[in-house]
Structure formats: structure tokens, C-alpha cells
């Protein structure tokens, strides 16, 4: 039996999912996301990217197969365990889901407050992160007063503020320019270097190519993994070298 400490962050064994009364959106998926992995997730609209992410952040349960998160089967978790598991996952929603009655600071501080963080530390961490994403002047602004790009940056800051072990982002750079998109991706990279696993759903092919990480490709509900060009080239070189020797 795999120890929880060394277990994959997420493990899908024959996972399928369908909405009530519909056909399978995700079909028989087998995949393991290990600590420190970084994946882009791509696929056409309706391919099931958001559905797969919602399984991973425990908004839904698979209709078939077994999903394990941090070593535990989600269908066997108690409600308290599910809450603890969710606190280890940072999510950037496609529609941001910011709370309009809270200012930027309090929106970002939300996960820390839910986790029972100390107010002094919350203030320091949130201020630093908002400065990093270039929103230190908008700290007291409310979401309806902010642009789409600013809201997106707040949503990202909120997802990463508690240093989760897994970050799931649904089109996190859809509303920002290329420069800001790269800057935000670097934030995810920094966290990834510290051991956080990252899965980013994106349509932005230039960005995916630029960062050159493996892709989870969804098509017709089926999952395939595409290795980046550099890995493929290296593999083929090794294969060719091996061939030469032979």
C-alpha cells in the first residue's frame, strides 16, 4: 500500500463522469499527478476541462472509477476530511468567483481566514502578494470597480495565498495581456519549484509552447498526455544514440 506521504497528489483509476441524465463527459481516465508536476490542460470548448478540474477540487464525485486525492479515496472521505483536502487545493475559477461585498484585500485573505490564520500574518502576506501581482493600489477596491484582468489577478492571488499543495487554474490568463500572463505563469512556476503541483487549463497555445510543460489533452472525454517538444526531442536523440550504438 502506498504511503500517504509519497502518494500521488491525484490519482484517477478508470474515472468517468457524467451530468445527471447526460452522456459521459469524461471517459475511463487513468492518470497520476505527482508532487511537483506541472501540466497544462488543453482541449476544445466542452471537451471536459472544467468537469475534470471540478472532480479534482472536490466539487463533484466521479460517476465511475476511483479518484484518490493526497492518498485518500474521495468516496471514502468524511466531510471533515474533504474540507481538509480542499484547503490543500488552490483554485482559480474561470469566472473568478470573487465576493463583491469584500474588497481586494479581503478576497485574497479569505482562504487564510477560513484556515484560522492570525490577522497580523494575514495582513503581511496578502499585502506582499497583492504588490507582487501589481495590485497594491487596488487593495481597498471592490471587484465591481476592477477590470477583468485585475479581477483575474486577485483570483490567482487568492488561489495561491495559502501555499496549497495543488493549484488548479481554469483559464487563469484569459483576461490579461501577454506580459502579465507570463508574469502570472512565473508565479505558478515559483510555487511549482517549491513542490506545488500545478494544472492549468488554457486555450493559449503560444503560452503553452512558451513554457514547454507536458499537456493533458482532452478530446471527446478522453485524456491523453502530450510531452513537450524538448522532451520528445531528447527522447528521440537518446533513442537515435542508442540505435547508433546498436
Amino acid at each position: 500500500m502506498t504511503s500517504k506521504l509519497t502518494a500521488p497528489i491525484a490519482e484517477l483509476n478508470g474515472v468517468s463522469f457524467r451530468y445527471a441524465g447526460g452522456a459521459d463527459v469524461l471517459k475511463d481516465m487513468n492518470f497520476a499527478l505527482n508532487p511537483g508536476d506541472f501540466y497544462f490542460m488543453s482541449g476544445d470548448s466542452g471537451a471536459g476541462k472544467t468537469s475534470l478540474l471540478s472532480l479534482l477540487y472536490l466539487d463533484r464525485l466521479p460517476t465511475k472509477g476511483r479518484l484518490r486525492l493526497f492518498g485518500s479515496a474521495v468516496d471514502e472521505m468524511s466531510r471533515a476530511e474533504k474540507a481538509r483536502t480542499r484547503r490543500q487545493i488552490g483554485v482559480v475559477f474561470q469566472d473568478f468567483r470573487l465576493l463583491d461585498h469584500l474588497d481586494a484585500f479581503d478576497n485574497v485573505a479569505l482562504p487564510l481566514r477560513i484556515a484560522g490564520g492570525k490577522e497580523g500574518e494575514i495582513r503581511r502576506h496578502v499585502s506582499e502578494l497583492l504588490a507582487w501581482v501589481g495590485l497594491e493600489k487596488e487593495m481597498k477596491s471592490f471587484p465591481p470597480e476592477l477590470s477583468g484582468g485585475e479581477k483575474q489577478r486577485i483570483a490567482i492571488a487568492r488561489a495561491v495565498i495559502s501555499r496549497p499543495q495543488l493549484i488548479l487554474a481554469d483559464e487563469p490568463t484569459g483576461n490579461v495581456d501577454d506580459a502579465m500572463a507570463k508574469r502570472l505563469l512565473h508565479l505558478f512556476l515559483e510555487l511549482n519549484k517549491l513542490g506545488t503541483s500545478v494544472v492549468i487549463a488554457s486555450h493559449n497555445q503560444p503560452l503553452i509552447k512558451h513554457f514547454n510543460f507536458p499537456q493533458l489533452r482532452l478530446k471527446d472525454g478522453e485524456l491523453s498526455i502530450i510531452q513537450p517538444a524538448s522532451v520528445v526531442n531528447m527522447a528521440s536523440k537518446l533513442f537515435n544514440k542508442g540505435g547508433d550504438h546498436a
Binding site: R97, P111, I114
Partner: peptide, 16 residues
Amino acid sequence: QPVIALIHLMGAGDFY
């Protein structure tokens, strides 16, 4: 409801 759903997804326990 939307606020509760969000906070729930962020890991707030039932007791909280």
C-alpha cells in the same frame, strides 16, 4: 448560496 458554495470549496468545514 454562491458565497457559501465558494467558501465550502475553499475548505471551510461545516462547523465553521
